[in-house]
Design a protein around this nucleic acid. Structure first.
Lengths: 353, 353
DNA sequence: GTCGCGCGCTGCATCGATGTAACGTCGGAC
DNA sequence: GTCCGACGTTACATCGATGCAGCGCGCGAC
């Protein structure tokens, strides 16, 4: 059986509490005592029982991350970044997949596992406007994404509008004038598709370019397959294009593939830009220019906010909303020799209340 | 503050232990009592404090999964499957990334977090032959992969040799005779590359086809980029091919891309097969034929074995080694009209001791 | 010389649940 | 009629740690 503090105390000839003090770095301990305790710990190969410590302190050192599915590359990379950020804070991450299922999303915020974790980073897919009350729990939560906002809840999100605007501005700067858009969700306003389209339109307006509905192509799920289909539809409609903006990388990659199959030269004939900067994109040929939404920063910020909430639990902190920095990552799909050149276009992260 | 069993007991007018009995489904309780307790639980919105239960029972309901990185699609999908399988067993999953770093892999098996979890599913990358002693811990562990085996430790792995053999057999069955191989690791014997090459050679021998070293192409990391480079090298060498076997999907996708860039028709001129069956592959155009190594089964089996170990902890179970079933998933990259047709080629899962 | 305080350490209560022993009651077996 | 055992329930100890109060001691301040 594993050794307990009691065993260590007996071997070291001190009280159990002194062992606890040594383990927790309490400063007022004679050096000789500390040495003896440490020797006993070494000898018995003692490790603190975290379960017991948790019971006493109410902290577990585990945070939960709830995402739709890990098989979606963006979320896998987000999870990767969250785990790394948590590790830097001495925390481990427990992952829940809710699959965009409403019932399971609700279960995540109200579930019994709350006792197991110190807090939750939650990226919802089904919950949305109107569900704010569900988020009013007495438990540290950080929300991700743009589906739902609530005044009392910390939130980390991205500059969807500005980033999309920067992407289109960048294409316009290259001299492109007829920019196809892949991944539109007609009628949507608050989701990623709606916000990114809004940014695209602003960039066009800023450059006095017309907004042509004929250049928009719808895609339900934001997958490669859908991107290829949407691209095909756009080309088949006879639209004349010199650039394509895929609302995420999967769409852009699908679109790019369709273009290549048809013998279109990228970027000579048509330039392609995506959004998300998933790993996959830099391995495409040509490598995909894309908007990096600051995934790693989002992860770091979210973990930081959660840690902050955990430490100041009970006190009335005002809730914070942070927008991650983004940047346009220029690669070969827009500039022949631009492979992996990174260009910072905008950096904005004004915390707002 | 959250309600405790004590509160529930007071409200229901019973002892705290009776509440415990109700919560844990102990059968000998009068219906009226049970009803009263349940009502009190409902009224107070009581949830068991898992930390306290853990301390008492020594179980946490959490299992750890240690993988190199979630950003590698195969591991993201493995994690996805493990989380789903764990959920089916009432468990949650805590994920550790060791990044193939030896020190961190060792930390994972000996770390203090062991107390937080009931067991560990471990997919090592740095540990290998010679490190068996590190695995001899008094803690439920299930090993994945083919890097290291140890007599005392449960293991789930895949039929690398047989599966690769089936892939090549399948290509030969299509009438292909000159099969390029992308992803060779010269000199390797026990790793995936070595085993898969061995399977490939056997299939050639079985069909009385010559083994031509000139058809092998090396790739260090198994990425798309490396696949494309290896493919290019092979083509540039002047080798005549009618098929390509990528040792994983990323390699195969990279190779496929290189072929398409050069105007090679897939599968008319050259058929392409991969290995792993990651989601990405079915969205390629043409969709990639591949070997499904039974990732989901691997996950389910590993979780099952771990649960078994946890339940029979202490008793001297013999350790088990399971090989997952595999199958060749036929898609457009080898047969024009074979998109998403699945063909079971071999099913083998003889548990061995 | 006394007081107060910080140091180094201890003992006890406590976190919230579960396991064990044991209680009274009641029905059935002898 | 007595005894036994199953039933429904309870009290108490326990899991392994931490928080708090407090002890004896030495040292500096007044």
């Amino acid at each position: 059986m594993a050794a307990t503090m009691h065993d260590v105390a007996r071997v070291a000839g001190v009280s159990i509490k002194t062992v606890s003090n040594v383990v927790n770095g309490y400063p007022h301990i004679r050096d000789t005592t500390r040495t003896r305790v440490l020797a006993a710990i070494e000898q018995l190969d003692y490790q603190v029982n975290v379960a017991a410590r948790n019971l006493r302190t109410g902290r577990t050192g585990i945070i939960a991350l709830a995402v739709p599915e890990l098989r979606i590359p963006y979320f896998a990379e987000l999870a990767d970044a969250v785990i790394a950020a948590a590790r830097a804070n001495g925390l481990t991450v427990l992952i829940e997949q809710h699959g965009g299922d409403r019932a399971r999303e609700i279960e995540v915020i109200s579930g019994a596992r709350r006792h197991l974790t110190d807090g939750l980073i939650f990226s919802p897919l089904a919950l949305g406007a109107g569900d704010e009350s569900l988020l009013e729990v007495d438990f540290p939560i950080v929300l991700l994404g743009e589906r739902i906002f609530s005044d009392g809840v910390d939130h980390v999100t991205m500059h969807n509008v500005e980033a999309a605007r920067a992407a289109t501005e960048y294409l316009i700067g290259l001299g492109r004038r007829r920019i196809g858009v892949v991944g539109v969700h007609p009628g949507e306003v608050v989701g990623s598709a709606g916000l990114r389209l809004q940014g695209h339109r602003r960039a066009l307006a800023d450059a006095d370019l017309p907004f042509d509905e004929g250049l928009l192509s719808e895609a339900g799920p934001w997958s490669r397959a859908a991107g290829a289909r949407a691209m095909a539809a756009l080309l088949d409609s006879g639209a004349q294009l010199d650039a394509v903006f895929g609302f995420n990388d999967a769409l852009a990659l699908g679109a790019m593939h369709e273009l290549q199959v048809r013998g279109v030269r990228i970027p000579a004939d048509i330039a392609v830009i995506g959004f998300d900067n998933v790993d996959e994109s830099q391995y495409a040929f040509p490598a995909l220019t894309t908007v990096d939404p600051g995934t790693e920063q989002i992860a770091r910020t979210a973990v930081g906010m959660l840690v902050d909430q955990v430490m100041h639990k009970g006190s009335d902190r005002p809730s914070t909303r942070v927008y991650a920095d983004f940047r346009v990552v220029v690669r070969g799909s827009t500039e022949p020799d631009g492979v992996s050149v990174t260009r910072d276009v905008v950096a904005a992260a004004a915390p707002t209340v």
